[in-house]
Design a protein around this nucleic acid. Structure first.
Lengths: 350, 350
DNA sequence: ATTATTTCCGTTACCGTGCACGGAATTCAA
DNA sequence: TTGAATTCCGTGCACGGTAACGGAAATAAT
């Protein structure tokens, strides 16, 4: 930390023969400054290498900057609840920075609600934005809007084709499928496997588990080429239907012992699984939802692959803070985060 | 966020009939305050719920506080190198807070060097200290010294019996052994297992892997009661000796396929293992050292259990920051951190 | 009782920015 | 030319805390 090297607005005021008031006006371009003075100040800033003192600014303003968090609404026990929780956990440590994160949620099945959330977020004049994107095109459009406003934004969880984002934090989708397959087989040859899928995902053109499934299938292809992989489709909103579907399916395939879901919903299978116990069964799913972790503890689920959504959110906000407060760009634009393997022996310390 | 609710030191000065100066003195307990005044101020702080304004503080001080990090010297490729690395990674984000971490290292086999490091650290007048302790009694003594100086300290990795620490971040030792055993067996019955140990550890009265081994053995007892567990002792500084020891031992036990080390040195076995390949062997070790991870990638090591030493350091420093800057105590004093399971399929994203 | 110490404590000048207020300089209208 | 309306710009206080300085009060020394 420099001693007397720090350049203050007073320095550049003196250097230009103007006053700190004027300098402040150009810094926040709030007008009332002649063209000539504006130029002089800009030049001086450049020459002297002025950098604003964040603390002083924050102190004087005594008002936090808001960071907008744009995430799907968190139904209780859902994946997005974890993400929101991450925001809360970060908040404490980040508020010291003078940033106060604020949540803007939308219905993940309603694009209009997404637009609404975007609008509200913009009205809050955020200094930065974290986006958990679901609608590709709409997200791109919003990103463009942020850029034109000079507002930095970070993606978490998944990433559209946008290029202008400050950073991205998420799990590598293909590799997560690969890892999942390895955990399912336990590195052994297995006779057969079942992927349980959400019917709606198959029909929608943007199946969120697409890449993950590709990784899964490639692993099986390579390490268990003889092993047939079955698919079963269920409706997550119809528990009774799930039970019937599983009953029917397993009547036809009574010897299938390896079951996997590539999204966060493995808990949907738990009631059926616990009514039909089988010590030699292996069940693998994703994400550290409470229901999933409970099933893990009881031994119904063998293993979960988790991506620490809270951690993603934390890092996203921190990257923003670094940029907003210190103009520091993150080291890497795209950050693929660690995939955690949870078993009942380490889940309690997660 | 409160509007005008913020309590300043001026408020508590008025409330106690004292002045800013005095309040400031007790806040930084730099003496020159009568017992009575000290008490009054403390009570007012409590009653009014005063929270220091970090920006103002940072602005006024315009000089970083140093945080001392007391860790064993990092031989290249060793566990402690990871810990030190963690310090570097944290630094960036913490410097914004006006804290600058500074490393003080000691020779883990030389208690005098530890004392030296302690002394140097104290001379730097740190605002807080992170300790990775190895020498129990000596550490306790040092802790006492810090306490009398009013300097908060945090332990990482392991924890002496001290009670006065601000926080502790580490892996739960017993459970890590349990988890390790589960990964070694893969949840199956196995016919036999070998623990490779460091000879010096057995002889010293403070074997760092003691609890871990207890967890390991208890798991085996419970899930593989028939499985014999062998022990083999090696000298880490004698590679040729290791080779000979392994040669000799495996001549006698050619069918043992499950090998484990409960410290970070599994890489010591790699040369021998790769000269005697066996696809059906399972090898489990600890900690994400470069050499270990490389062996994992090549398939020589099946799985590593890692504790994210960098993360421990980060959290330790952050806990200190919270306390120093905002007088916030950590939520939990003892924090057992997540145990990460690394396989060759997720190691690349670690 | 007087002087010398020590212990405590209040005063005050910053730290670097934000912003309101009012005044000087310039332009426009008459 | 003069008064009014605009532009521009400087001054000064506020933000909450830090720490040096010096002085008052309490205690010890003479």
């Amino acid at each position: 930390m420099a001693k007397k090297e720090t350049i203050t607005i007073l320095d550049i005021a003196r250097h230009t023969g103007l006053s700190k008031g004027t300098v402040d006006r150009v810094l926040h371009n709030r007008g009332e400054v002649s063209k000539k003075s504006h130029e002089k100040v800009m030049r001086a800033i450049e020459e002297l290498g002025y950098e604003p003192n964040v603390y002083a600014s924050l102190l004087a303003r005594s008002q936090d900057l808001t960071v907008g968090l744009l995430v799907p609404a968190a139904e209780p026990g859902s994946f997005w609840e974890l993400v929101s929780a991450g925001a809360g956990k970060t908040a404490g440590s980040v508020e010291t920075f003078g940033l106060s994160p604020r949540l803007f949620t939308y219905d993940q099945y309603d694009i209009d609600s997404f637009r609404d959330a975007c609008r509200q977020l913009l009205e809050a004049r955020p200094a930065g934005v974290v986006i958990a994107p679901l609608f590709q095109e709409e997200t791109n459009r919003f990103a463009r809007e942020l850029e034109s406003g000079g507002i930095p934004y970070v993606f978490i969880d998944s990433k559209p084709d946008t290029i202008g984002h400050l950073a991205y934090f998420g799990m590598p989708p293909y590799q997560s499928g690969y890892l999942c397959a390895d955990q399912l087989t336990g590195g052994q040859d297995i006779p057969s496997a079942l992927i349980v899928r959400i019917r709606r995902d198959r029909d929608s053109r943007s199946d969120p588990t697409l890449n993950r499934r590709a990784g899964f299938m490639d692993y099986m292809e390579q390490y268990c080429p003889e092993c047939p992989v079955f698919h079963l489709f269920i409706d997550p909103n119809d528990p009774a239907g799930i039970d019937r579907a599983l009953d029917a399916w397993f009547r036809l395939h009574p010897d299938v012992r390896h079951i996997v879901m590539l999204n966060s919903r493995i808990h949907l299978l738990v009631p059926w699984l616990e009514r039909h116990p089988d010590r030699r069964r292996r069940v693998v799913g994703f994400d550290n939802l409470r229901a999933n972790m409970d099933a893990l503890r009881r031994g119904t689920v063998t293993c979960l692959i988790a991506q620490h959504p809270e951690e993603q959110m934390r890092q996203a906000i921190e990257a923003l803070a670094d940029y907003i407060l210190r103009k520091k760009l993150p080291e890497n634009k795209d950050n693929f985060m660690h995939m955690d393997i949870l078993t009942r022996f380490n889940v309690d310390y997660y």
